[in-house]
Structures are given as structure tokens and as C-alpha cells.
Deep mutational scan, measured.
Amino acid sequence: CAFTHRPCSHPRLEGQEFCIKHILEDKNAPFKQCSYISTKNGKRCPNAAPKPEKKDGVSFCAEH
């Protein structure tokens, strides 16, 4: 993984420079932040999710 703030030993995603944990660092990657919002604390999930086809579409990470 090419994350520069600290060493990361996670494997890169195929065709990308970053792992799934750090892929949002790459603005050109086909990922965006997960659209899930917790009902308990109102916070948005920080994980990466595939970018949807539509610009305003929602997309969820593997956990959600």
C-alpha cells in the first residue's frame, strides 16, 4: 500500500496504489466513502465503497 503517513502492510487493491483501508486517499480511485449512517450515533461509516454509476447514488462498503 502506498499510504505515506505511516507504513501499511495491507495488500494493494488490484490496479490501485492503495489497500481498501486507504483507497480514499486516491481521489481518482473508483471508490467513495460508504453511505451508511449509524442510527445509534448519527456518524457516517468511514470505510470505502465502490463509486455508484450515478453521481448522486448511494454505495455501501462490504460491512453494510
Score class of each variant (00 low, 15 high):
S35I: 06
Y36L: 07
D26I: 12
H5I: 11
P46F: 07
S38C: 14
E63H: 15
K32Q: 07
E14D: 07
S35M: 13
L24Y: 07
P52I: 08
F31L: 06
K32G: 12
D26C: 10
C45M: 02
L24D: 08
P46K: 15
C8Q: 00
L13Y: 04
I37Q: 14
P30R: 05
N41Q: 10
G57C: 03
R6V: 11
K21Y: 04
N28E: 12
P7N: 05
Y36E: 06
D56N: 12
D26T: 12
A48K: 06
K43D: 14
A62K: 15
L24R: 07
P7G: 12
I20D: 05
R12I: 04
Q33R: 11
K43R: 13
C8D: 01
L13E: 03
G42L: 09
A29C: 07
C45V: 02
K40W: 02
H5G: 15
H64L: 01
C19H: 00
R44F: 08
Q16G: 03
D56S: 12
N41K: 15
K21D: 07
G42N: 09
K21M: 07
Q16M: 07
C61I: 02
A48Q: 04
H64V: 01
I20A: 13
E14K: 04
R12D: 00
K40L: 15
S59W: 15
E25F: 12
C19P: 00
K40E: 00
P46T: 13
N47K: 12
F3V: 03
I20V: 14
I37R: 13
K27T: 07
S9I: 15
G42K: 15
E17P: 08
A2Q: 06
F18V: 02
A48P: 11
G42M: 08
R6A: 07
G15R: 04
A29T: 08
K27Y: 05
A29W: 02
N47R: 12
I20E: 09
K43G: 08
C34S: 03
G42P: 10
A48G: 09
S9W: 07
D26M: 06
R44H: 13
R6D: 12
K43Q: 13
S59L: 14
L24G: 10
K32E: 14
A49T: 15
Y36K: 15
V58Q: 15
N41E: 15
F31V: 04
C1K: 07
A2W: 01
T39Y: 04
K43T: 14
T4F: 06
R44Q: 15
N47V: 12
G15P: 01
H10L: 10
Y36F: 15
H10N: 10
S38A: 15
F18K: 02
K21P: 00
H5Q: 15
I37F: 15
N41T: 05
P11C: 04
T39I: 09
C34F: 01
I23E: 03
F18C: 03
A49V: 15
F18M: 05
C8Y: 00
N28V: 09
R44T: 14
S35E: 15
I37N: 13
D56Q: 12
S9Q: 09
A49H: 07
C45Q: 01
K32H: 06
R6M: 11
H64I: 00
F3Q: 04
H64N: 02
A2P: 02
L13W: 03
K27A: 14
L24H: 05
D56L: 08
P30M: 04
I20T: 05
D56K: 15
P50I: 06
C45S: 03
P7F: 09
E17V: 10
P46Y: 10
C61A: 02
K27R: 09
E14F: 04
G42F: 05
T39W: 01
E14G: 11
A2N: 15
C61T: 03
K40R: 01
E63D: 15
P30Q: 04
T39D: 10
A49M: 05
Q16I: 02
P50F: 08
L13C: 03
N28D: 04
H22C: 02
E63R: 14
E63V: 06
H22F: 00
L24M: 11
K43I: 06
R44Y: 11
H5F: 11
I37E: 14
C8I: 00
E25S: 10
E25G: 12
E14S: 07
D56T: 13
C45R: 01
E14I: 05
N41F: 11
K40M: 01
P46I: 12
R6E: 10
Y36I: 08
S59I: 15
D26P: 04
V58A: 14
S9C: 09
P7A: 12
A48I: 05
K40S: 03
A49F: 09
F31A: 05
G15C: 02
I23M: 05
C8S: 00
K51D: 13
A49G: 12
T4W: 02
R12W: 00
P30A: 05
K43M: 05
D56C: 12
P46D: 07
P52M: 14
L13I: 08
S38Q: 11
F3D: 04
P7L: 10
K27V: 10
T4C: 10
K51G: 14
K43E: 13
P11E: 15
P30E: 04
S35W: 07
N47W: 11
P52R: 08
K51F: 05
A48V: 06
R6S: 13
E14M: 14
T4M: 00
F31G: 10
K43S: 14
A29V: 05
E63K: 11
E14C: 07
C8N: 01
P30W: 01
K51P: 10
I20W: 05
S38G: 13
A62V: 13
L13S: 03
P52L: 10
A2E: 01
C8L: 00
V58E: 13
Q33C: 04
D26Y: 05
H10W: 09
I20Y: 07
K21C: 09
I20N: 03
C8H: 00
Y36W: 09
P11L: 06
P30G: 12
S59Y: 13
P52Q: 12
F31T: 05
C1N: 01
F31Y: 05
I23Q: 08
E25M: 11
F3S: 08
R12M: 02
V58K: 14
Q16Y: 06
N41S: 13
H10G: 15
P50S: 10
D26G: 05
N47S: 14
Y36M: 05
E25I: 06
S9R: 06
N41I: 12
F31E: 08
K43Y: 13
